[in-house]
Nucleic acid binder design. Structure first.
Lengths: 343, 343
DNA sequence: AGTCACAATGTAAACGTTTACATTGTGTTT
DNA sequence: AAACACAATGTAAACGTTTACATTGTGACT
């Protein structure tokens, strides 16, 4: 009779116990009804569902996780650098986790928290069931840390692509290969230069390899002086351009290992009054935000970075759902050549 | 005697119960020792700590949250657009939450998850104690949703700055005011134009207001035709520039309400062979990544966007720790004029 | 010596859910 | 009609921690 009054007074969030009382069944039945257990008649299920709806019931996930000993959350560890693409990765990860009823917990590494820290807490507190780690480089130290993790880990990034881990990466090799073939086959260039990324960077290594292989395959000889070292910064692109354009035999096109260095090339070209694409063509890699807007807009290799996040999350959740030790995966997300006006 | 054997066999993560057994004390004492409760002698505390260290014990946070009924996590809800600054906000939030022993859970809004959805789950499942919401605009709908939230919410973004919510925002007004005064006082310009943001955008409104007030205060008359409407896109900056430069009396300087529109101005200036800063000066707002690299580099208003995240997290955690209903805060993060070469 | 105050520790309940096991009831098989 | 199978539901334990309350022990005061 005075139930409604009780409801008004007691505004605490409803539990299955309350539902059970209202429905005149045990909490076990309520739990089963809510979890679509077959061992409950359609009649009681309906009753329970109706009441739980009326009460606007939501299961206490903390309690559920506690008893089930699996937290329906995954950890996403970001490195301590900033990057335009992180948001997209987060978005991709979150979309998949959400679809699967999981939650995403982020942890940035920063001056107060080391990577080891993040992994350790995530791995042992029960807060998350698995971890996605955006890594800048695979070091021995990192390897040690990962070996001690008690929960599945999926890595995003190149690293040396060892078979000991689940890794999702962009297809650096194919992207570079395609871009180079585009310059050779579509644009008929024979003299193509490459500004590389940092020597120790595996993304950079693969892009260089893709470039070289595409040249070889298509019978384009690679002038040694046409490969100059960069380090992914605007500045190194600037100087790379100058170095290349100062050669007695100038290249017809430059493939920069990333867009930032391509932007550096724009600056240098501008400074020396070299016209892009009339005097020299330019291709980048990454399709950063600016590439579309710079003048002339930059032909580059786009990475569907959100897909990287999605793939990593999908892989991790697979691991969590079937804890069998299937050998590790290496997923390469395909790239796409975005043709604009710099060639 | 054979403890070590037992340890080897039983590799499950240690609990206080195991520590208690080893230390020959009750679990209550262990709990107290670990939580720095004064009611435990230094001797036992040391013993417990040593053992828990030996066992590499980490408290099961799910269990702790469960019993304490406060999840030491906060939710961070991102809108469905992408933005260069999100990563910094996440980083700022995470740094503060980490320092305070909290965790950060992200949820992007996207096609599968509405904002209402995110708030509802976060607010009722016990997963998080509070929410930080990055909002693009304050709508009636949003207001309704927020009213129903049962946990503290801190908003990031301008919106109309109503007193019903805790809001952290950048100081649009002061930033625009300072930039304009810089043009007037330091650069001695008398003819200054402004390209505005979208009419319905409150950030844009405040920037315009700051511009106008700075002009008024310093006796600079505002030619009506010097204020042209933009919408924060490169394109609208491009056209804004053309419109302004087509005037019989050209402005000496343009204050664009954001950097993207300033970039549009660069393009237009380039196209019409107008030299920046010789022929016309330019100031932007935001200090996006590119502004430093464009040529000439752009003088602009920098927002310490990480501070926004930090302030929001700090405010939220304050709310969580002292649940008194102190009236709401409006925190404005100061901006900084970055003087480069476009003036 | 008896009482008291208080410090250190122990006991056990509580949190909300899931789930193994127990119980009841119903219809079917012999 | 007795035995059985099985479906529906109930009972209670379990998860790991915190914490109110109970107990014990110790030294200081009367």
């Amino acid at each position: 009779m005075f139930c409604f009054l009780f409801d008004l007074i007691n505004n605490m969030t409803p539990t299955i116990k309350q539902i059970a009382k209202k429905a005149n069944v045990s909490i076990a039945t309520v739990s089963r009804a809510l979890n679509n257990d077959v061992r409950v008649t359609e009649l009681t299920r309906e009753k329970v569902l109706r009441i739980s709806n009326d009460l606007n019931y939501r299961p206490n996930l903390v309690a559920r996780n506690f008893v089930k000993k699996t937290s329906y959350a995954i950890g996403l560890i970001l490195p301590d650098i900033s990057d335009e693409f992180f948001t997209d990765i987060i978005r991709g990860v979150d979309e998949i986790t959400y679809k699967n009823g999981y939650y995403t917990m982020v942890a940035s590494s920063h001056k107060h928290r080391t990577l080891a820290d993040s992994i350790a807490t995530f791995s042992q507190t029960g807060l998350v069931g698995g971890v996605i780690l955006l890594m800048s480089a695979m070091t021995d130290n990192l390897k040690n840390i990962l070996d001690q993790a008690k929960i599945p880990v999926v890595l995003i990034g190149a690293g040396k692509q060892e078979r000991d881990f689940d890794i999702v990466t962009i297809d650096n090799y194919q992207g570079a290969f395609n871009a180079t073939e585009y310059l050779i086959k579509k644009k008929k260039f024979k003299k193509i230069a490459h500004i590389t990324g940092p020597a120790e960077n595996y993304d950079a290594y693969l892009r260089k390899k893709g470039f070289i292989d595409a040249c070889k395959k298509n019978g384009v000889s690679i002038n040694k002086s046409f490969i100059v070292d960069g380090n992914f910064t605007i500045d190194s692109g600037y100087h790379g351009f100058i170095q290349l354009y100062g050669l007695p035999e100038k290249p017809e096109a430059i493939f920069a290992a990333n867009d930032m260095m391509a932007l550096g090339c724009y600056d240098a070209a501008n400074y020396f009054n070299v016209k892009i694409p009339d005097d020299i063509s330019l291709v980048g890699f990454d399709d950063i935000f600016m590439s579309k807007y710079i003048n002339p807009s930059l032909t580059t290799v786009r990475v569907q970075i959100e897909e990287v996040g999605k793939a990593a999350a999908t892989l991790l959740i697979e691991r969590l759902n079937s804890s069998n030790g299937k050998h590790h995966s290496l997923i390469k997300i395909p790239t796409e050549l975005i043709i604009r006006n710099s060639c």
